[in-house]
Amino acid sequence: MLEIHLILLFMIAAAIIAVEVRDMLSSVVAVGAVGIGLSLAFLVLKAPDLAIMQLVVEILSLIILVRATSHRDLPFSASGRWVFNTVSTISFILIFLVCAYISLLNLPVFGEPQLRELSKFYIDEARTLTGAENIVESIALRFRAYDSLGEATAIVVATIGVLAIARRVSIKGKADDER
């Protein structure tokens, strides 16, 4: 229990650093720290598949983000009606947190899930129905394979989208210089 709290506090601290620091490369590194903290959290919460997946995806995201920050550009600080904007943002976030807290009171306490008949079905029947030893994989690849199809399709969409955006000549006859 204590480990989860500590990891979460570390992640929040790293996130605040990522948000507030001025240098873009440090910001990306801090987000990497948040991601690795998340991977550790998945490990502590007994989700090993997710820890591996999160690590891989985190590394990919970091590479992509670092590619973007290689065009160095210092971020600007706020200007204009920034007092009003900041205050309204923070008050909106506080209202959101308070409402979330109130509704969390209705829910089962952390660590003691209730009424999970569906999960009980998966745990009891997965080996007989699918022959898989890893229940998460049997859910993701057998019972809910349709969602995994969707996830693979999303990567295809992103890839084709990036290819489309990365074209050097988009409109026939006009090179893409300054438009």
């Binding site: 969602d147 999303a154 992103a158 989208g161 955006i165 988009s170 409109i171």
Partner: peptide, 28 residues
């Protein structure tokens, strides 16, 4: 409900790329 969310994301991702398809500055 989660399946609906996944396919909603697919459609949305495709739309982001399609809106930017001409690669003009305003489209991006």
């Amino acid at each position: 409900i989660f399946n609906m969310f996944v396919y909603l994301e697919i459609a949305s991702l495709a739309t982001y790329a399609l809106v930017a398809f001409g690669n003009e500055a305003e489209a991006l």
